[in-house]
């Protein structure tokens, strides 16, 4: 995961620790950069699957 604002690279577990004090963190689908606080939505699962499928086709194979 790379922050779109400051370029800091982090993984999702770091992001959730950055907003652990927020009361909405359980239901919130946003990711917060632990470095600068910038928030952005997590890529939805359906889009992740679609991207993988597209990449797979591009590489000459189809992911199952």
């Amino acid at each position: 995961m790379k922050c779109s604002l400051c370029g800091y690279e982090f993984d999702i577990s770091e992001s959730s620790s950055a907003c652990s004090s927020c009361p909405m963190n359980k239901s919130c689908t946003l990711l917060r950069c632990p470095n600068c606080g910038y928030e952005f939505p997590k890529e939805p699962e359906w889009l992740e699957k679609l991207t993988k499928l597209f990449k797979g086709k591009k590489n000459g194979r189809i992911n199952s």
Partner: peptide, 21 residues
């Protein structure tokens, strides 16, 4: 971070993620 030409795949993924949210 360096200034760069936006990648269309990144732009599409970011736009769709935000619309979904």
């Amino acid at each position: 971070p360096p200034l760069r030409l936006p990648k269309i795949s990144n732009v599409i993924v970011k736009t769709l993620s935000r619309i979904n949210w």
